[in-house]
Amino acid sequence: MTVRLPLLPRWLRWSAVALVGGFIFYTSVVVAPPATPIDDVKLTLIPLDKWRHLVAYAALAGTLVYATTDWSLERRWTALTVVAVAVLYGIGIEVGQSFRPDRYLSLGDAYANAVGALLVTPWYLLRRYVTFVDVRSGLR
């Protein structure tokens, strides 16, 4: 059994990657996110700011997964490329923050970024059950 999913045009998929990457850059390097009262509350073992990193990099890796879905590389190489790009982007953001007087490089944030990027790896096990259908073919 396969599930049919729409495949948007390549330019739109890569625009989504750029949008998510740009949002991460803007909120991480250009401006510091405002402190909120909930930032100081410890609801779990993982602080809220680490959850934000995890979700942001899962979103980045997720858009990369969708953008690269038509690549002809082997599944493992595509997965490795997607995760590596997201992790390296996270490391680059952390290094970029070190040059800002109000920000700092955090290994904890870099680990949270990497864990978020790794959350997309189960997709590559499920991918064989998915068929992508070009949305333009449905418009004709």
Rank of each mutant, 00 (worst) to 15 (best):
Leu19Pro: 05
Lys42Arg: 11
Leu48Tyr: 06
Ile38Glu: 14
Ile46Met: 13
Val41Lys: 10
Trp14Phe: 13
Gly90Thr: 02
Thr63Arg: 03
Pro34Trp: 07
Leu64Met: 01
Ala67Pro: 01
Val95His: 03
Tyr66Asn: 13
Ala16His: 02
Val31Cys: 09
Val20Thr: 02
Ala86Ile: 04
Leu60Ser: 00
Asp39Gly: 11
Val31Glu: 13
Pro47Trp: 11
Ile93Pro: 01
Leu73His: 15
Ala58Met: 13
Phe23Thr: 11
Val65Lys: 01
Ser15Trp: 11
Arg75Gln: 08
Val17Glu: 00
Trp71Pro: 14
Val29Glu: 10
Leu80Glu: 13
Leu73Lys: 07
Leu43Asn: 05
Trp14Arg: 02
Trp14Asn: 07
Val31Tyr: 04
Gln97Glu: 11
Ala86Pro: 03
Thr78Ile: 09
Asp49Tyr: 12
Pro101Glu: 12
Arg75Asp: 05
Gly90Leu: 02
Val55Cys: 02
Gln97Trp: 05
Val17Phe: 00
Glu94Asn: 06
Thr27Asp: 12
Leu48Arg: 11
Asp70Lys: 01
Thr69Gln: 06
Ser15Met: 15
Leu60Glu: 00
Arg52Ala: 09
Ile38Arg: 12
Ala18Met: 07
Leu48Ala: 15
Thr63Leu: 10
Gly96Val: 06
Val87Gly: 07
Val85Ile: 12
Lys50Ser: 09
Phe25Ile: 09
Val29Lys: 04
Ala61Met: 13
Val85Gln: 01
Leu54Gly: 08
Ser15Thr: 11
Ala59Leu: 07
Asp40Cys: 03
Glu94His: 04
Gly22Arg: 01
Phe23Trp: 15
Thr68Asp: 05
Pro47Tyr: 10
Trp77Ile: 03
Lys50Arg: 13
Leu80Gln: 10
Thr63Glu: 07
Val41Leu: 12
Gly21Leu: 02
Pro34Ala: 15
Ala84Arg: 04
Ser72Lys: 14
Pro47Lys: 06
Pro37Asp: 13
Gly21Pro: 06
Tyr57Leu: 09
Leu73Gln: 12
Pro101Trp: 13
Leu48Pro: 05
Pro101Ile: 06
Asp70His: 05
Tyr66Lys: 05
Phe23Ile: 08
Ala67Tyr: 03
Ser98Leu: 08
Ala56His: 04
Asp40Tyr: 06
Phe25Pro: 10
Ala16Ser: 12
Thr68Ile: 04
Ala35Asn: 15
Leu88Gly: 07
Val95Met: 10
